[in-house]
Simulated assay, not measured.
Amino acid sequence: MKRCLIVDDSAVIRKVARRILEELAFTTAEAENGETALSICQDEMPDVVLLDWNMPVMNGYEFLTRLRKAPGGEKPKVLFCTTENDVAHISRALQAGADEYIMKPFDKDIVAAKLQEVGFA
């Protein structure tokens, strides 16, 4: 089964994302910041990471740069999911190794379309 790690400091966003992803046949794990997410990835690398930008302890950008340098860290598809919508943020995320970008708020159709774009139908 496909695994998705949801990384967001908002419990509400994690809950909404978990429901959507489970409807799309993913098993899910959750982390409230990048540091916790890296620890989860070291234990078992997910297939997909749904990643917030602005979080305490370690933000999404720092998590992504560290993930991509970790053993096996090139494998997960990373979807940045954030309110940051300026071109500079999007460009920076993609250059750091993000595969796609989702704007909050999102719904099942948006998540499904983005997953399809990165190879998860």
Rank of each mutant, 00 (worst) to 15 (best):
93 A>L: 08
55 M>P: 00
78 V>K: 03
30 E>N: 06
43 D>G: 10
5 L>D: 00
108 K>E: 15
43 D>K: 13
90 I>R: 15
105 P>C: 00
105 P>M: 09
29 A>C: 05
89 H>W: 15
18 R>T: 15
81 C>T: 14
22 E>G: 07
21 L>F: 13
89 H>L: 06
63 F>W: 06
75 K>C: 05
8 D>C: 07
32 E>S: 14
108 K>I: 12
78 V>L: 01
78 V>M: 08
81 C>I: 10
40 I>C: 11
104 K>Y: 03
31 A>E: 11
15 K>C: 01
119 G>M: 10
77 K>N: 07
44 E>A: 11
8 D>S: 09
53 W>C: 14
77 K>P: 04
113 A>W: 02
10 S>R: 05
40 I>Y: 09
98 A>C: 07
81 C>G: 02
1 M>Q: 11
68 R>W: 02
54 N>C: 09
45 M>T: 12
37 A>K: 01
38 L>R: 09
91 S>C: 06
87 V>N: 12
11 A>G: 15
59 N>A: 08
9 D>G: 10
21 L>S: 10
116 Q>E: 15
53 W>A: 14
46 P>C: 15
70 A>L: 15
29 A>L: 12
42 Q>I: 03
18 R>M: 08
93 A>T: 08
16 V>K: 00
92 R>E: 05
119 G>N: 07
19 R>T: 10
88 A>E: 09
44 E>C: 04
50 L>K: 01
5 L>C: 01
25 A>N: 14
120 F>A: 09
117 E>N: 14
8 D>E: 02
77 K>Y: 03
50 L>N: 01
117 E>Y: 07
6 I>P: 09
80 F>S: 05
32 E>F: 08
1 M>P: 15
63 F>P: 00
15 K>L: 09
55 M>T: 03
16 V>R: 02
20 I>M: 13
112 A>M: 05
58 M>W: 02
4 C>A: 15
13 I>L: 04
106 F>I: 08
113 A>I: 02
23 E>G: 05
95 Q>G: 04
106 F>Y: 14
80 F>T: 06
61 Y>W: 08
84 E>C: 12
65 T>L: 10
27 T>Q: 13
18 R>K: 14
28 T>L: 02
108 K>H: 01
99 D>F: 02
10 S>M: 07
37 A>W: 05
86 D>S: 07
64 L>Q: 08
100 E>C: 04
105 P>W: 02
7 V>L: 06
83 T>C: 13
92 R>V: 04
9 D>S: 11
36 T>N: 07
25 A>H: 12
58 M>G: 05
76 P>K: 03
113 A>D: 08
46 P>T: 05
32 E>C: 12
94 L>K: 15
13 I>C: 00
5 L>H: 00
94 L>Q: 11
22 E>I: 10
34 G>Y: 06
39 S>H: 14
6 I>K: 06
34 G>R: 05
41 C>F: 01
40 I>L: 14
99 D>A: 15
38 L>Q: 12
